[in-house]
Amino acid sequence: MAETPAADVHPPYLYPDYKSTRLRAPAQPLVRVAPSPLDTAGPTFPKHFVKDSEADLTTWGKSAPLGEKMVLVGRVLDEDGRPVRRSLVEVWQANASGKYPHPVDDHEAPLDPNFLGKGQVLTDDKGRYRIVTVKPGAYPWQNHAFGWRPAHIHFSLFGNAYAQRLITQMFFPGDPLLAIDPIFQSVPEAGRRLLIADLDLEHGVEGVALGYRFDMVLRGPRATPMGV
């Protein structure tokens, strides 16, 4: 099984309870290699790659989407606590009914014409981001009998170096479905808390939107100062 010393927080490739890993997880050990100059550099996203409006997922339609409006704030940091500045953060999610506007989503739940469920933002000079959206719904999936994915928001981060590239999922505090979700449970216990947002009421909008906080930490190549 391809297992790495960094597995203290990252999931293994093979996690049989998540059925899709059985044929897709590499079986050979990873080859450890020093970072190349490509790994310590990374793509630069031009300033107008992202429009300010793309950080608000609730303003794409003719009126507000259905669901519980929320503001999500957080910081992207490296392992030494330094801000990861001017880096691209992409998000996508189901609507409040647990439905994605995607052709392979066969969940019998309504689409929301006022919600596309995608957004992006660049972190600021302190590594901060802010996104406005609605809380996604849980939805059933075919992995196992009576399986339901807990509500989650997908995150894609580029960091400041190719070696920092990360795709992950953010979950909500107190969700009973976390206990039966093999994707969440694939993360070793020491890492699970890091995928759950905190309520952060003061960053919400009084009377309008609930506030949540989700900070993320990107690693560099092991034992190699990246200086980014």
């Binding site: 960094a6 203290d8 927080v9 990252h10 999931p11 998540y18 899709s20 940091l77 490296d78 392992e79 030494d80 606590g81 992409e90 996508w92 189901a94 994605y100 506007p101 995607h102 392979v104 989503d105 469920g117 995608k118 997908h154 894609s156 990360l166 795709i167 992950t168 999922q169 994707i183 969440f184 993360v187 070793p188 020491a190 890492g191 699970r192 890091l194 995928l195 993320m216 930490v217 990107l218 690693r219």
Partner: peptide, 18 residues
């Protein structure tokens, strides 16, 4: 040292978004 955020699958529903 802060622990890195764990990875999760991209899932099946990404194309239009990414």
């Amino acid at each position: 040292m802060a622990k890195p955020t764990p990875s999760q699958t991209v899932g099946p529903f990404f194309a239009r978004e990414l």
